[in-house]
């Protein structure tokens, strides 16, 4: 009987020691989490200096920001914006100004291989740029030709949207991965916002809100304003009007030889003849 009592006492003492050790370990973990700003419970409790001895300031701070990657140069911060310099998918040189402009620029950091990006490529190729406000310029930025496949980028590039291949831009804007979006205000030369999205409609919604905040009601486009045709639309309209007037390619009136031909009506030359260069 005495032996049983002694064994029982030993077991109880061992279990008590085990529980005390577990509680101590749990407390150490909680203190460490507090010192990283991710703790639960009372965050005002000072961290145990024995837990994190590498940074004295973290011991006194209830929430220490976690930095990933190298520190930014002194002249930059997370709001600074940079012009984009690189090549287009055809290999020609392109520089896009996003600072010192009078408009907002939405930089869409996409890649040709990311499956999530496919919807964004398609949305930017829509006639209405996926519903993006017309006074916001969209620019697609992929990594440079050394890290991308130019032919794939060329295949996905929306015809009316500027596409720049520039690894330097990804570094400048510290892009963590694709897809990633940055909205820059060219008047203040600052980023208005940045982040990721799963659908382009989410990006458009955020852009609209940011623009409304920045510009106020006076700068919004007038309802019912009709844009003037330009570029290909204007060319097509001109062609329609000329054909309707009976002026086809090669018509003599298109090749005046003197001011008299211009101001006195159709020149006296047969259709299809053009002056020597």
């Amino acid at each position: 009987m005495l032996v049983l009592v002694i064994m029982d006492t030993v077991v109880v003492v061992l279990l008590a020691g085990l529980v005390a050790g577990l509680l101590r370990s749990h407390a150490d973990i909680l203190r460490a989490l507090h010192s990283l700003g991710a703790g639960v419970g009372d965050p005002s409790a000072p961290a145990d200096p024995e837990v994190l001895t590498s940074d004295v300031t973290t011991a006194a701070s209830p929430a220490t920001p976690l930095h990933i990657g190298p520190p930014l140069p002194g002249e930059r911060d997370s709001w600074s914006a940079h012009d984009i310099e690189g090549t287009d998918p055809g290999g020609d040189a392109v520089a896009v100004s996003v600072t010192h402009t009078a408009h907002l620029t939405l930089l869409a950091f996409l890649s040709s291989g990311c499956s999530t990006c496919a919807g964004f490529w398609a949305a930017l190729g829509d006639a209405d740029h996926g519903g993006l406000p017309t006074d916001v310029r969209a620019v697609v930025v992929t990594k440079g030709p050394e890290l991308e496949i130019p032919a794939e980028v060329r295949r996905r590039a929306p015809p009316a949207t500027t596409v720049v291949m520039s690894s330097g831009a990804w570094d400048d804007y510290e892009v963590p991965g694709s897809p990633f979006f940055v909205l820059v205000d060219g008047r203040t030369h600052r980023r208005m916002g940045e982040g990721v999205a799963r659908q382009f409609s989410q990006v458009v919604d955020l852009v609209r809100r940011a623009r409304a905040d920045a510009e106020g009601p006076d700068r919004m486009p007038r309802p019912g304003a009709v844009p003037r045709p330009d570029g290909k639309a204007r060319e097509a309209l001109n062609d329609q009007e000329l054909i309707a007037a009976g002026i086809h390619p090669g018509h003599a009136s298109l090749y005046p030889e003197s001011l008299d031909d211009v101001f006195s009506g159709t020149p006296d030359r047969p259709e299809g003849s053009r002056p020597a260069p």
Binding site: D83, D88, G90, D92, A93, V94, A95, S97, T99, H100
Partner: peptide, 10 residues
């Protein structure tokens, strides 16, 4: 390019 300019050579 001076500030505020953008460009394209193609």
């Amino acid at each position: 390019l001076p500030l505020g300019f953008e460009g394209r050579i193609f």
